[in-house]
Design a binder for these strands. Structure first.
Lengths: 279, 279
DNA sequence: CCGATTGATACCGGTAGGGTATCGCTGCAG
DNA sequence: CTGCAGCGATACCCTACCGGTATCAATCGG
């Protein structure tokens, strides 16, 4: 089983069409067919059911698809990390969502810079649903995540701190003047359906609220009186003048964690995590 | 970068000797040298410093060695799991240390067998330090671990239960009649140095106590008055006549968890975990 | 300074992998 | 029912890469 074969298989399994897959791989269709057939012969397993009209995955094929994706990801990570390690000046890529913990992040970077042998830290701004993939394929070494919203599956984490959540409302809304509020009161507002964020795959959950990608978009929509949202205190600490942040009594606390791939043995990453936990 | 190349590189990086590595790979030395050189050229990185007398790893080489090992492990796992999935009767391999939770295990297997669509469960008896590797390379699907002794890095876990620990002493020892004991009292016995178990790599920590591999060996040595040990209650519930198990007041509790590889999407494994958490 | 050890180089043969042309099956249109 | 379009498999060819043998070159020990 070679990586090239896995790349071929993933292409076919995703396209479910040998011709399209060959096009994507920039090769002709016949050698692709043969490569898949050879892979099946070596494994002794049928991966794809093909009629001349339709290609479908078998159970075993579905398993291999998932395994192959993570192997390809690991291979890409290996290349990146190996090249990184060859650089004389060590660099460390920290993936953060744009909204994450402004002050905490600044303190973390300051404290780490003071460490002896500190690497140059590159910030990689990204959306929440990309972070896990970035860590796994080596484009990032460490990430700041918000549990329980972001998934930390397959990652090792250290808790940095927990905070409550606030509801962001138009300043003119009747509830905006309250000093505290309950979750049920916010979700029960028919005129302000909760905004929807993209999930792990980048797709949106079902619901009546508008789809948003970032806080700026979101705050604009809230100011317009079209929606509302519940976010961590720190993210809503300093909203626009025309918005109000009302603390929630009963929302689950949000935990900010620092996360890294389990097998990571990077000195610089370990240092950063150590510094982070001491803040 | 191909899997074959990674296999070659790992062999050379471990042997630090092209000739030996070639022998291990059952091939001649020249093609091996060329393959490594090609890999270095493709990565644009020097992985090994070679004089004609001595081969050493560069930093980048050390990084790739660790990455490559986990990729090879993942590839082996992918093959095994794919073949498994092709079997009509699903099987599930559960890795347990010989001493783990006799009664809990029996209840778990009974309860799972009653599930609709239950897979055949194969028990894979092994030593503690192998379990993580077995899960990662696909030889096992699920494992029972004892935290904090066993490492669960890179694994997802669910807590099954916690228990106290007991000291196992010769029945004739002055402390053997006590109904409770403190950790410091046990570790402070110069005539009974604590036994040493192999760690994660299979190597033993430093210390005066004897090296042991399993409970049978250990109990024999304790009966002879050569050593003592602190183990979970359940493992020491039923010692030989010539031994005494004394509960410890202040030893950290041992948590038995069920663990599986994070990316695992196996139906059968998920079912087993669900059953386990309901026990 | 010589010889043994060890990695690199030169050269060769077989085969795997990629390309083009074409076949054969299947589903759909009329 | 028949013909066509779409698609994967097969046949055939060629190149390049992989692995083998023979040999070179550099380094270290005695």
């Amino acid at each position: 089983m070679e990586i090239r074969e896995l790349r071929y298989f993933v292409a076919v399994a995703e396209e479910l069409h040998f011709g399209k897959a060959a096009q994507r791989l920039e090769m002709a269709q016949p050698p692709l067919s043969r490569a898949i057939a050879r892979l099946e012969r070596q494994l002794g397993v049928t991966l794809l059911e093909r009629t001349s009209r339709r290609v479908t995955l078998t159970k075993a094929g579905a398993v291999l698809l998932s395994e192959a994706r993570s192997i390809l990801s690991a291979a890409a990570a290996a290349e990146r990390r190996t090249r990184q390690a060859a650089q004389s000046r060590p660099r460390l890529v920290l993936a953060v969502k744009s909204g994450t913990a402004g002050e905490l992040l600044a303190r973390l970077l300051d404290a780490y810079r003071a460490e002896p042998g500190a690497a140059t830290v590159d910030l990689l701004l990204c959306e929440a649903h990309q972070q896990q993939e970035l860590l796994h394929n080596g484009q990032a070494d460490v990430a700041l995540l918000h549990l329980p919203f972001d998934s930390a599956a397959g990652l090792d984490t250290e808790i940095l701190y927990s905070e409550g959540q606030v509801a962001i409302l138009p300043a003119s809304h009747p509830l905006a003047g309250r000093s505290q509020i309950r979750l049920a009161e916010v979700t029960a507002l028919p005129e302000l359906p909760m905004a929807r964020w993209p999930g792990h795959g980048g797709s949106y959950p079902e619901g009546p609220g508008p789809e948003v990608q970032n806080l700026t978009q979101l705050f604009q929509l809230i100011a317009l009186g079209h929606t509302t949202v519940v976010i961590p205190e720190s993210a809503g600490a300093d909203p626009r003048r025309d918005l109000a942040a009302v603390p929630l009594l009963d929302a689950p606390p949000v935990t900010t964690v620092i996360a890294w791939p389990s097998q990571s043995r990077l000195r610089a990453a370990a240092d950063l995590v150590r510094v982070a936990t001491r803040l």
